[in-house]
Design a protein around this nucleic acid. Structure first.
Lengths: 218, 218
DNA sequence: AACGAAGCGGAGAAAATCTCTCCGCCTATT
DNA sequence: AATAGGCGGAGAGATTTTCTCCGCTTCGTT
């Protein structure tokens, strides 16, 4: 692949990530094009339709997340710090986008499912290690972790997004939330229900229109 | 006002709240109409243009928030619990919508500013009481509180929203995050920077196009 | 350094979506 | 039971979005 083509491809994927995150997975591809600073033809040449773009985006992001999880495990001795490191990396990767878009416009076929399983396994490793070390509340599951990441790493709506132009606010709020997930000395006022598993998230996300390419009916 | 008209009005406001929250303040009014289950004419008769709708929505929401803050103060002795009660109430009111929409499509004129000031004052009362009682980290400001509420009370994107059909997940995650805001025994790993004030949020939100009716240029 | 192949952006046609109004029927209130 | 006020649906016009064709530019190679 030619160098300029690879560059365009990456710019498009990055732009798509941001745009889908901000405006939902039905955002006009035109907006992606504008954000990427390329011509429409360039997008359509590389990705024949919306699904191809989404699939590439999600696959790319999952691979990076897996890598981030493994990097975090290697880099930190304390399992809680490793988890924390990963969560921050995931926010930087705008992990929200993968999940947002993942099961809305995509059939999770064999290949994608395999990539996803790899990611989930890697992250579960971090989570369980932190929990087993007593550094994390027992009632926090993968589902909770994922959903908190999605919620906290989404860009703020509208003009508010400017508040966090450099992303430091996201990290601050992640730290605040992580402090809430950490094993606390006992005075937790509400919360303690049962942990939310990843499978439950998947199941819910697949619901609306039978895992069809473009499920979703209002 | 006739009873059926009042009912329609409320259905439209509730629908607008959800739709703006999910799809941003530029969401088609058509979508509001569909969600509300009324005819288009009903919306346009009551609210001549988008701004009228947004203004009514925001005013209504701010009034309810103020009421919720006062109710929480009355209902709980412990200031931390009062704050917690308010935050949960705010989530139920989908407080996010007010902020999302507030400074994007609206000039905050005299009347609206007054209503907003009332709300901010009431909530600041709760926050400061909790902080003075030593139940809250000192580095948590109104801005942090508002932004956490916005982030956590937004509906989950796309199909994921089904996960939290009854809203119980929001409350669970709010509790987790609140635990992070509570005064902790010292082992907070990251976070502690300076508190984010409400004024900073307002300032950022007002930025994009000079407080014009429809500011915002890409 | 110069050639050929691959890639790029812009203009714009066709399709889809959104805004907003007219009008005949229905429902609250007296 | 009368009447004023309200309601929903159909649809015209404007706007937005999708997607393609084509002439110029850039990359990789000889």
């Amino acid at each position: 692949m030619r160098a300029d083509a690879a560059r365009s491809r990456r710019r498009i994927l990055d732009a798509a990530c941001e745009v889908f995150l901000e405006r939902g997975p039905d955002a006009p591809l035109d907006a992606v094009v504008r954000r990427a600073g390329v011509g429409p033809a360039t997008l359509y040449r590389r990705f024949p339709d919306r699904e191809a773009l989404v699939r590439a985006l999600v696959t790319d992001l999952l691979a990076r997340l897996t890598e981030a999880a493994e990097e975090a495990r290697r880099a930190e001795d304390d399992p809680y710090l490793a988890l924390r490191r990963f969560v921050h990396a995931a926010a930087d990767l705008r992990m929200g986008a993968a999940i947002v878009v993942l099961l809305e416009h995509l059939v999770v076929d064999g290949e994608l499912a395999a990539v996803r399983r790899g990611t989930v396994t890697a992250v579960e490793g971090l989570l369980h290690a932190a929990r087993d070390a007593g550094r994390l509340r027992a009632d926090v599951g993968m589902g909770d972790l994922v959903l908190l990441c999605v919620r906290l790493s989404r860009p703020l709506p509208g003009a508010l997004a400017a508040l966090d132009a450099d992303g430091s606010l996201v990290h601050r709020h992640l730290d605040l939330a992580l402090a809430g997930l950490a094993a606390a000395p006992g005075d937790q006022e509400g919360a303690p229900r049962r942990a939310l598993g990843f499978d439950e998230v998947i199941a819910a996300a697949g619901r609306p229109g039978e895992p069809g390419p473009t499920g979703v009916a209002e």
